[in-house]
Each structure stands twice: as C-alpha cells, then as structure tokens.
Write a protein that binds this DNA or RNA. Structure first.
Lengths: 216, 216
DNA sequence: TCGCACATGTAAATCGTTACATGATTAT
DNA sequence: ATAATCATGTAACGATTTACATGTGCGA
C-alpha cells in the first residue's frame, strides 16, 4: 500500500484489464507483448502485482496444482478507474539504452576490433528480437495469435519495431564498413565523407523542420 | 571499494580518459554526449565518480571557488587498464523504453484522444532531442565543437540517432493518421490495410534474412 | 540589492535485478 | 527412475532517482 504506482504498475494493470491471469502467465504475457518497449525482469512482475492488490486495483485468488499453490489475479473496478485516469495523462519521452553506441563513443580508448565487436554484437541482438517479433506477426496474419480483436494495436507497435530494427541494422552495416576503412580508431577526425554525411543529416532535419512549420 | 563497476562506471571512466573534469563538468559532458544512449541522472554521476576513486581508477583533487569547494577528477593508469579490458568485452543488446508505445498497446482501455496524445507527446519529445543533437552536429561541421579529433566517433552516433528520430517521427505520422481513421479505439481488429502493412513488414524481414544467408 | 539561475553536492527512498529455492512435468 | 526443464515464487542487494540544501554570480 505504500508509494504511488509506477509506469510498470500500470503496464501490468493494463494486462489484467484485458484478461485475468495467473502470476506466471502474466510474466509470459509481459515478456511477449511488452518487453521490446518496456523491459522488466520476471521477478519484478511477481512483486509488482502484489502491490496492485495492495492498492485495491486487483484481487488475488490462490489455486492449487498438486501440492503447489499458484495465484491468479483479476482487475477490480477501482483498478479500471485508475488505469483510465492514467491513460489520460501524457507519457514520458522515449529512452534508448544502447551500450554498443556508448562503447563506440569511447572507442578511441580501445582498438579497432573492440569497435567492430560492439557493432556486431549489437546487430546480433537486434536481429534476434526482430525475428521473434516478426514470427508473432506471422501468426497474426495467419489468423492465429491471441486476442485478435486487439491486432490493430499490436500491429502499430510491430510496425514501429520493424522500422526501428531496419534502421538499426542498416546503420550497423554502414558503421562496420566505415570503421573497417579507418586506418586506426583514433585521431581520424572529420573526414570528407563524414562531413558529407553530417551535412546530409542536417539537411534532412531542416527539411523536416520546414515541413513542420508549414503545417498550421 | 564494494561491488563491481557497472556499465555506468565505465561510461564515466571513458569520459575521464578523454580529459580530466570537475564533477559538475562531468555531469554536463555526460548529458551532452551520452544521454541519448545512456540516460542517467546528474546526481547519480556525483556518486559514481566517487566509486571510481574507491577502485583506484581515478583521483580526486579539491579546488576552491570563493568559499565553496569543488572536486576535479582525473583517470589513473589502473583506470585506463580497466577501461581497455572492459572495451574488449561484448556489449549488452539495445533496450528501448517507450512509454508512448506501451500506452498504445493498452489504448483500448481508454479513448481515442488518449491514444492520440500518447503519439503526439512522443513525437514532441523526439523532435526536441533530435533538434538538440542536430545543433551539436552543426557546430562540428562549422569547425566548432569540442575534441575535433574525435568527431568521427561522435558522427557515427549522430547518424544513428538521426536515423532513429526520422523513423520514429515518420511512424508517429502514420500512427496518428491511422488512429484518427478508426471509428473507435476498441474492437477494430485486423483490417485489410493493417494486414497489408504486416505482410509488407514480414516480406521486408524475409528479404533481409535471405540476404544475410547469402553472405557466407 | 534582490531575486533567479547556475554550480555542487548529500541523504533517503525505491525501483528493479540477481541469486536462490523448490514443486511439478516431461523426455529419455 | 533420473535428469532436465517448466512453473512459481522469495529475499537480499544495489543501482538510480527524487528531494533537498546551500553557495555564487549576474541581471534588473
């Protein structure tokens, strides 16, 4: 009952609003549907759902499988109210946590193979999540997949993640090629191709800002 | 002296490897150069740098401004060693934390205006960071900007963030238009345009996977 | 000279993770 | 029957954030 609900609390409450679940099912579902945008450990979820009960947003009922207990959770009317109230508030902005890029920023303290490894490891990780996400979408277009009346929402997120993954993977290819072409990882500075790329990026930004100003 | 250094420890150590800084300058520099990929609060940095000293990776010297103390930090040879060792290990995969998308996933528990606000607020946040990043790059191409011999590294990160921001902003436009076109936020399901978009995404993934298999 | 923003931290609270533990189920 | 894996948590630890506090310099 202490402290306020966090964003993670509402995330879980939102899952309960769709359906009642056992704690373990909640961890599966959270992993399946939210991990790409809101990554939390499974152990955290076991704790968080108890807090929901403490606030009166969910009820717990214990079932029994053989000699072992398990807990099923369901949302309460107060929980639905709280969820709706939260949904009416504005979200925090996106946050990226990309250790591979951090390492690239510091790459001149190591050697070229370190920088290349950072890029390749990052690419592998994205390739894996991208593939998992796409398999889920394949199920949906084949008429499979849970809660088909919610596909329009899931599909919106999937399209974003696919765009993100494509951008990230393309960037990995470019970055790897460029690092490979450096004589060394230190002291390269502003080469002509780099200057050109930056100018392109700036021009693209300016075009967008200009378009935005024209609207209204 | 307790517990192991975290990724954030090494991030800070990497900054010290470039240059000695006062604690406050460290917070400024971390915000300027790392926040987009490794966001940490400024207060955290004050604590973290003391831990670096505890491990013998940095030394602290206190200066004085009027009646007020301030602390300057510098990396030690042991710190450089530790940093190089860390750079030789593989990074964790990228993590996204996008509350706006989380809200969209749960959007059928609220109403259409909630979903639209989630998208618009997200777009505003990205627009702001994108602009700040671009202004830094503008300084670099004009020959301004700190540590010009490191521009090749910074530019690589900038190109990624620009690509990310473009993808995210484009997606925001698409999402807003699509949500706007829904009669209601609930029960829409798999419409024909949505199915088409998903199939396109899957095909794009398959093409990429095919290309990847052809290499080697 | 008053107030406000910048500079420089500290302490407490807490969100979240890692490590552990144990019952049930399935494959071999 | 045994090993491995799935299911279902708990408890401790620690990384990070939020809130607070105070000095300093500058503009009105």
């Amino acid at each position: 009952m202490p402290t306020e609900p966090t964003t993670s609390s509402y995330a879980l409450l939102g899952l309960l609003a769709i359906h009642p679940w056992t704690a373990y099912d909640l961890t599966r579902q959270a992993k399946r549907s939210m991990r790409l945008f809101w990554p939390r450990s499974e152990a955290h979820i076991y704790g968080e759902v108890k807090r929901l009960v403490g606030w009166g947003y969910a009820t717990a009922s214990t079932e029994r499988t053989g000699n072992r207990e398990r807990t099923a959770y369901a949302i309460t009317p107060a929980g639905r109210d709280a969820l709706r109230t939260w949904l009416a508030t504005p979200p925090a902005g996106p946050q990226l946590e990309i250790e591979g890029l951090l390492r690239l920023l510091l790459a001149d303290q190591g050697d070229k193979s370190d920088a290349l490894r950072a890029v390749r490891t990052t690419r592998d990780a994205v390739t894996t999540s991208y593939g998992i996400g796409i398999e889920q979408m394949r199920a949906y277009v084949e008429g499979d997949g849970p809660f088909p009346d919610r596909v329009h929402l899931v599909a919106l997120l999937a399209r974003f993640y696919a765009d993100f993954a494509e951008a990230m993977l393309d960037w990995c290819d470019v970055a790897e090629a460029e690092i490979d072409a450096w004589p060394d990882v230190r002291g390269v500075g502003l080469t002509e191709p780099t200057r050109h790329a930056l100018e392109e990026a700036i021009a693209r930004y300016d075009r967008r800002a200009h378009r935005a100003r024209q609207m209204t």
